[in-house]
Amino acid sequence: MRPFTYSRAASVEEAARAAASTPGARFIAGGTNLLDLMKLQIETPTHLIDVNHLGLDRIEKNPEGGLRVGALVRNTDLAADQTVRRDYAVLSRALLSGASGQLRNKATTAGNLLQRTRCPYFYDTRMPCNKRQPGSGCGALKGVSRSLAIIGASDACIAQNPSDMAVAMRLLDASVDTVSADGSRRSIPIADFHLLPGDTPHVEHVLKPGELITSVTLPRPLGGAHVYRKVRDRASYAFALVSVAAVFGKDGGARFAFGGIAPKPWRVDAADAAAASGPRAVADAALAGARPTAQNAFKQDLVAKTLASLFRQKEARS
């Protein structure tokens, strides 16, 4: 961990201003991913701005009938919130399938959205990695890639996004609310928030320097039956091989989002449209254009099988 200076911001505007004007500055919230990476010098900020004390830890209903989730709401608290449990159960389920109780007590809503990949080549600073060190190459493409992305990736990077929460957020069409250094605020649809790697895998989202997430807004509840299914190599405390978030509407419609398979939470309109045709059709639509490696090609099948399991359970319930 490189030396850094540390400060606590007094307001969100001030935090954003300071971050934009201080070279090497990063915000720190839960720290569960940032400090992990700083110890390995994958992240080397020279200044940390602690945003834990800015009152961003509230969950409030908004006038449009949706929910505004403060950026600093801990994963545990978001999952346990009564409104979230009732109206956005897929989000509770996704959060609860991630990490461990200890980590969820610390990790935050905004931090989770910005969680970086678990690609093992990203994590070993002696290995080539275009995300960590642009231009150094991708160690994973022809290496150990079993856990990595099968779609949305590029020849420069096949890292996966490891978040569960973000998959549910994507399903719910959440939007990310920010404040910038100049005090301006904007709301970014989550669909537009994460970026695919292309030739610039080190650019992972659309936030500008200094831009601070203040909250995530969930639209009005969708109703329907909410499910989040995470398939992994052990029963708990592991990242997804594949995860599927789904809401099955009373009208027979459904929407789906996928985790563990792409550089961002994966959602395809055509997959939702294929719901009536069954799980294999949904999988085919969702994975159109997939380019897996030999080691992770099984994920295509696993997406279909996971969907099949969801459909089977839905039928069993109805």
């Binding site: 934009a20 720190i28 919230a29 940032l34 931090g111 992972e204 936030l207």
Partner: peptide, 11 residues
């Protein structure tokens, strides 16, 4: 543009 959980990017 590197960013991470718990930290929104500065410059």
């Amino acid at each position: 543009h590197l960013t991470r959980r718990g930290l929104l990017q500065g410059s």
